[in-house]
Nucleic acid binder design. Structure first.
Length: 412
DNA sequence: TCTGGGGTCCTAGGACCC
DNA sequence: TCTGGGGTCCTAGGACCC
């Protein structure tokens, strides 16, 4: 038994693009980009062939084609990715029950107690790589380290198809010259702030006097110093033991900017239905409704929220709350993006309402949900909804996605 | 012809209550 | 005359992650 934890972080390489290349042999070896389905979509993932030509995540499609004219654009199909991800996570659990999915294509494994069975962490890593390649034709990068922070750092150090070990005795040497922005949790703004304090490397961050960091960043300062030192005690949290979901939301960039109030309301109704049906599927109700609007100029936006007296999850109730927020605002520009979300969630079994018309609404909702769960979302919708012309695969998979689909919520 | 979508956590200030 | 403090809930906004 080692005197430290042994954590693997596993990162599927160009996951969506690789899955598409496996599904369609004609795409293999070619520059491809996976995109969402909307009219103003960006590149979600691209194959390594495309990356070599300068294609980057987040680029508009036209931009990707400009830098790489032979780029093949594929509309993503989330069912493929979630199916594959679920199967891959099942492989992980053959090696340890302590598997935490960070996103659809990244997981941590705590194999501390598996070493006596399988040998070394490297052995486990190679066996996992071989299984994933054999079963799915996919490659991954794996980092091995004494904690999650360092394992993730390690898996990033060699791509694609990498295997990187950060042994406890090498932590200080590896971190000393490592740029701070390589650490998961230090983004652009934090990097800029730290750089202004003349802190560029993890070595410098780890040596920084804690008071200097806490005076500037508050409680986060303490954590920053630890990160610079490669300290991370956070446990690998296995399936079913995550915190319950805290909010459910949908937003959509419209194909064109709109300022027609009726059109805006129709879109809000559609978003409310998406939010409501998912909340009901999770068996949660919420009392705070958020509305988010981004204007045509892209940079100006606002969000407003309202907290109700009771918990709701019916689509028409969510819609009504969103509209009441909208009515408090005079729109300044045409609208580019609309978002609706619900928070302040609690798990709630359906109770039969007291009044006849409320009972009818509940039954209608349940009948609609049943059909939609069987045949896919938005087959049956409220009367005034626009037809949803976007494919089932057009949505990007949220980071909170779990292989069982739902985070620690009982399905009724 | 620019720039997606789904989340989490943290902070700050005001209202309100005891 | 002078004027509390802690806790909780709420809104708004920012940073970060994939």
């Amino acid at each position: 038994m080692p005197d430290h934890r042994v954590i693997l972080h596993l990162d599927m390489n160009a996951f969506f693009a690789s899955v598409e290349q496996q599904a369609n042999p004609e795409l293999r070896g070619k520059a491809i980009a996976v995109v969402g389905g909307g009219g103003r979509t960006v590149i979600t993932t691209s194959s390594y062939e495309a990356r070599a030509r300068g294609v980057k995540t987040g680029m508009a499609v036209w931009e990707g084609k400009r830098v790489c004219p032979e780029l093949i654009v594929v509309v993503g199909d989330n069912r493929k990715y979630t199916y594959t991800s679920t199967r891959i996570n099942e492989i992980f659990r053959e090696f340890t029950p302590l598997v935490e999915a960070f996103s659809v294509d990244e997981s941590w494994l705590d194999v501390t107690h598996s070493l006596s069975i399988f040998g070394s962490a490297e052995t486990i890593a190679y066996r996992i790589k071989a299984r994933i390649l054999h079963q799915f034709g996919l490659r991954c990068s794996i980092g091995i380290a004494p904690n999650k922070l360092l394992a993730k750092l390690a898996s990033d150090m060699k791509k694609p198809d990498g295997l990187t070990v950060i042994a406890p005795e090498n932590v200080a040497r590896i971190l000393e010259p490592m740029p701070i922005q390589e650490l998961c949790g230090i983004g652009k703004k934090m990097q800029r702030h730290l750089n202004m304090m003349s802190i560029y490397t993890c070595g410098e961050l780890g040596r920084c006097e804690e008071g200097r960091l806490t005076r500037k960043f508050g409680i986060v300062g303490r954590r920053l110093k630890q990160m610079g030192q490669g300290i991370d005690e956070s446990p690998v949290i296995p399936f079913g033991e995550e915190d319950a979901v805290k909010s459910v939301g949908h937003s959509r960039t419209l194909d064109r900017d709109i300022d027609d109030p009726a059109e805006i309301r129709r879109f809000l109704l559609q978003l409310s239905e998406m939010v409501g049906s998912r909340a009901r599927r999770y068996g949660v109700s919420g009392k705070t409704i958020h509305l988010y609007v981004r204007y045509a100029d892209f940079f100006s936006s606002w969000g407003k929220q309202t907290t109700l007296k009771s918990y709701i999850n019916r689509s028409d109730e969510i819609y009504r709350a969103a509209i009441s927020i909208l009515n408090t605002v005079a729109l300044e520009q045409p609208v580019r993006l609309l978002g609706v979300s619900i928070s302040g969630l609690k798990h709630q079994a359906d109770q039969l309402p007291l009044f006849e018309d409320e009972r009818k609404k509940l039954w209608a909702t349940q009948a609609m949900d049943t059909v939609n769960q069987r045949f896919g979302d938005m087959v049956v919708t409220l009367g005034s909804l626009l037809p949803d012309k976007e494919s089932a695969g057009s949505h990007v998979i949220p980071p909170s996605w779990r292989p069982d689909g739902i985070k620690n919520i009982d399905i009724i």
